[in-house]
């Protein structure tokens, strides 16, 4: 290299390839060197390290991988799970609304049936039903209520009289005797 720079400028600085010692080539052109017998020592060192690593791996209990998934698939799986959950929730709400609408339609249809049927009921049947309902609902309940009222008045009278008697007796004793 020095020759080429020192001798003449026309001569190429870089040689066209080389077939000799690669380390010497680097030393000559880049000034980079290596310790003596480096590659022989390095080979032994690499082989020793590999043996050591193999021994360490053998000693370590093998991890039992129950479930493994690549990171990119993990995101896809998580997104799918969220989508399925959202879909389930949405479908549940959708079904409830459907049921409610069905129920409303059914009850309206039922009410219509009653109305139509009520038009076809005989007048005598209607009178009999009214009498029975009046007797049960109004007369019987009214009698019961009247009885309860009587009892209440009677009780209150008895209680009040006895309290009054007691009071008078006590007052008389106090004023007359004392």
């Amino acid at each position: 290299m020095k020759k080429s720079t020192e001798n003449n400028n026309k001569k190429s600085f870089l040689k066209e390839g080389f077939k000799s010692d690669i380390s010497k080539h680097h030393k000559d052109y880049l000034g980079t060197g290596i310790p003596e017998d480096y590659f022989a020592k390095s080979k032994i060192s690499i082989l020793d390290k590999i043996k050591e690593e193999a021994r360490v791996e053998e000693e370590q209990p093998k991890k039992q991988l129950v479930f493994y998934m690549r990171p990119q698939f993990k995101y896809i799986a998580a997104a799918s799970l969220v989508f399925i959950l959202s879909l389930t929730v949405w479908l549940q709400n959708f079904d409830t609304k459907e049921d409610f609408n069905n129920l409303k339609i059914e009850s309206l249809a039922f009410e219509d049936d009653i109305l139509i049927e009520s038009l076809l009921v005989d007048d005598n049947d209607l009178d009999a039903f009214t009498d029975t309902t009046l007797f049960n609902e109004i007369v019987v309940k009214a009698e019961l209520k009247e009885q309860k009222l009587d009892n209440l008045i009677l009780n209150s009278l008895i209680v009040e009289d006895s309290l009054l008697d007691n009071y008078i007796n006590e007052e008389l004793i106090e004023t007359v005797i004392l």
Binding site: M1, K2, L30, G31, G33
Partner: peptide
Amino acid sequence: VLFEDEYFDGDEIQKKLN
């Protein structure tokens, strides 16, 4: 770092090439 390396002993031209 290269020029300070103990296994580098290049002259000015070698440094220039680097």
